[in-house]
Simulated scan of single mutants.
Amino acid sequence: MALRLILMRHAKSSWDDGNLQDFDRPLNKRGRRDAPRMGRWVTAREIEVDRCLCSTATRTRETFDLWQQGSHQTPTVEYIEDLYHAPPGLILDCVKDVAGAGRTVMVIAHNPGMESLTAQFSGQDRRFPTAATAIFEFPQLERWRELTRHSDVKQLAFQVPKELPSEVE
């Protein structure tokens, strides 16, 4: 089986508490609704996630927890401080360094890095709103250490929460 990479931006966060640092902002009501829905969407595509690399920010951690509840999957999770507002190159470095033997790896992180990396892999500039999820396959790769921005890649899917089909509600 080819290696698969799932890129997910954290779900919608709250700006209600002006005293919180950006890093500490929690999800808002919409974010708490969308994260499990995206988990159900991934599972409906018959994709099993082996490993999740997740930013250490509050909103990404909450996104993973709720995604996991919706998907009923229990991938190994690695919380990585470097994923907080990471640019595309650093996201790739984290995948190469931490993904290990996982065949399907999910990254939950932030924009603009997630949007930029998705654009690089898909060849399409598009908005990557909160909880957006892109799934890529790398048919030529044997190990994550071989991953580069120029790896042969096929986009399998792209989904935003507001366009989810009703069967994953």
Rank of each mutant, 00 (worst) to 15 (best):
Q124C: 12
L117K: 12
F138M: 02
T148F: 01
R127Q: 11
G102K: 01
H110D: 01
F136M: 10
M114P: 03
Q124E: 13
L141S: 12
R103E: 15
A132K: 08
E78D: 14
S151F: 06
A131C: 13
F121P: 02
P112F: 03
M106Y: 02
T74A: 09
T74R: 13
V95Y: 05
F121E: 02
Y79P: 02
E78P: 00
T74H: 13
M106R: 03
A157F: 08
A119Y: 02
A86P: 04
A99K: 06
M106A: 13
T133S: 04
P112N: 11
A132D: 04
T118A: 15
F138W: 01
N111F: 02
I135L: 14
P87Y: 07
G89I: 07
W67T: 03
L117A: 07
M106F: 06
R103H: 10
W144Y: 11
P87G: 13
R143Q: 11
A131K: 07
P129F: 10
Q140D: 15
R149Y: 12
A101N: 08
L141M: 12
T74P: 00
K96H: 00
D97L: 04
R149G: 15
F121D: 00
H110P: 02
A109W: 02
E115D: 10
G113W: 03
A99P: 03
F136P: 12
D82Q: 13
L83P: 01
T76H: 14
Q124G: 01
F138R: 03
C94P: 02
E146S: 12
R103N: 10
R126D: 08
L83M: 05
D152C: 13
A132C: 11
T76A: 09
V153D: 00
P75N: 03
F138Y: 08
V98Q: 14
Q68Y: 06
L117Y: 08
D82A: 15
R103V: 03
F136I: 10
I91K: 08
M114A: 09
T133G: 00
G123N: 10
Q155C: 12
Y84D: 11
L92C: 08
H85N: 15
V95A: 09
H150S: 14
G123A: 10
H110V: 05
P139Q: 02
P87L: 14
I80L: 15
T118V: 13
F136T: 08
E146H: 09
F128V: 06
E142T: 14
W67Q: 05
I135C: 15
M106S: 06
G70Y: 05
L117I: 13
Q155M: 15
M106C: 10
P139V: 05
K154W: 04
V105I: 12
D152R: 11
Q120L: 15
